[in-house]
Design a protein around this nucleic acid. Sequence first.
DNA 1: TCGTTATTTCAGAAATTACTGAAAATTAAG
DNA 2: CTTAATTTTCAGTAATTTCTGAAATAACGA
Lengths: 170, 170
Amino acid sequence: MSPLVESFVRHFGEMGSRWGINRTVGQMYAYIVLADEPVNADELAAELRVSRSNVSMGLKELQSWNLVRLKHIPGDRKDYFVAPEDVWEIASTLINERRKREIDPTLTVMRELLMDTPSSAADRHAQNRIKEMYQLIEMLTQWSAEMQKLSPKQISRMLKLGAGVSKLLG
Amino acid sequence: MSPLVESFVRHFGEMGSRWGINRTVGQMYAYIVLADEPVNADELAAELRVSRSNVSMGLKELQSWNLVRLKHIPGDRKDYFVAPEDVWEIASTLINERRKREIDPTLTVMRELLMDTPSSAADRHAQNRIKEMYQLIEMLTQWSAEMQKLSPKQISRMLKLGAGVSKLLG
DNA sequence: TCGTTATTTCAGAAATTACTGAAAATTAAG
DNA sequence: CTTAATTTTCAGTAATTTCTGAAATAACGA
């Protein structure tokens, strides 16, 4: 692993551990993303100096997140993995998976709590706050879903426009 | 704690632990956000059944994230805490703090790696990937910064418009 | 089929993170 | 200044998460 790749991999390991992802899985993904050809499990174990079994578990996790795709190489029995070419696709996958695992269940819980009959003034206040949060999260979620229907090019254009749109709307 | 509040607090404890935040701190914040009056440390310790010292550390963390504000109550020596009234402000704070702690350092590392002279074809490929990610992250960051300058009302309007803006731009 | 190569599983060990109780420090009132 | 109330610190412990090696399973070709 070149120093350049190693720095990046190290950094993403640290960052990963601040999110739900563990250090090794973060490093594995960073390595796969930067690689210019498909990567196999033995290579990951050797380069990152972790056990083969750890790599196996990490790859399973990355696959469950749809962040890597299995790619077979003719004449080679090993499994090889690649990350999507398009960084927008990676971002999009991350957003979708986090929504599925975190946002959706949260919205469900909130929706249920909003159905309950409040049993005190404090409960009524709590429900109000939950409602505000619910509406905020739902709005952001719907916006992001709509954006994802656009092409990366279109999304770029919109984002670059930024708050400028506000003026455009008068 | 009413069943309603307890469900919410429980859920946010679980969710918090999927992000960098630990379960107890997540629960503490959920409790403070829903409370209809300022909350003190003893109340948190009692309601969440954790030690007073744990609460103290958790509150320090929430303060370092700017997610709670200290509020004194006349005639009471205890420290009381509140969360911002406006949920947009909470979201905004979360975004800003995460940017400071995670995005900015990441962009710095990437910028440095892009300055390096690649020492192989693989390195050149890696640099390209890093560049793509850099540009994507920067674009999203700038967009979010611009949006935050608008009022919550304006942001709402824009988000509700969603991809509709795309047509508007032709 | 058998033998070889590759991957997965999983119980226990190692590492990390969270939590507690006791003591120290801080704060404010008298 | 003294005392009492409150908060913080921190060393040790508990709980959780991550990682490993060994064994099991699967995949394939001869």
